[in-house]
């Protein structure tokens, strides 16, 4: 538990909640997979707010280190895969995340923060589903890699 960061994680989470609240003031749900999905063919008609939100998303992360935030904690290869294997895993992971969130109508933000926020039973079931499968997969990989 040496990496435990309850205060920054809670603060970050509160900012996510404020962001989702602000977006709902314009009638929209802050579900990132759905916001992106609406731009992918066949795209929805309301592209401009989606593009602006996603530009903001990248900008917000870019601003973080500029105002003194520490990004050294970011480790993109937690299982220490060999480089070529890691690239293959990332392709597979990306395909599964893209297809899965589209089929399941949401991701960590749409179901986890917005859906649970409005006490949606569908979002509770979805959140339990992706948490459970993710925990099982991490357990299996840990057994295989011995780490």
């Amino acid at each position: 538990m040496e990496n435990f960061t309850p205060f920054t994680s809670l603060s970050g989470g509160i900012i996510l909640g404020i962001s989702a609240t602000l977006l709902l003031m314009s009638g929209r749900i802050a579900g990132i997979s759905g916001i992106l999905g609406g731009l992918i063919p066949p795209a929805s008609d309301d592209k401009s707010w989606r593009v602006l939100f996603l530009i903001g998303l990248v900008t917000g992360a870019a601003l973080f280190p500029l105002v003194g935030g520490d990004t050294d904690y970011i480790d993109v290869n937690p299982y220490n895969f060999e480089e070529s294997i890691h690239y293959g895993i990332l392709v597979l992971a990306g395909l599964l995340v893209g297809a899965g969130t589209n089929i399941g109508a949401g991701c960590t933000s749409g179901h986890g923060i917005c859906g649970l926020g409005r006490l949606s039973a569908r979002s509770l079931v979805a959140t339990l589903s992706f948490m459970a499968s993710a925990i099982i997969v991490v357990f299996v990989i840990r057994q295989i890699t011995g780490g």
Binding site: S109, R122, V125
Partner: peptide, 24 residues
Amino acid sequence: LIAGSATFGIGWALGGLCPGPAIS
């Protein structure tokens, strides 16, 4: 809903990235 979300979870665990962080 369930199968799609479970599929997302597998990819999340493999890469450690969900859509928001992947874009940011």
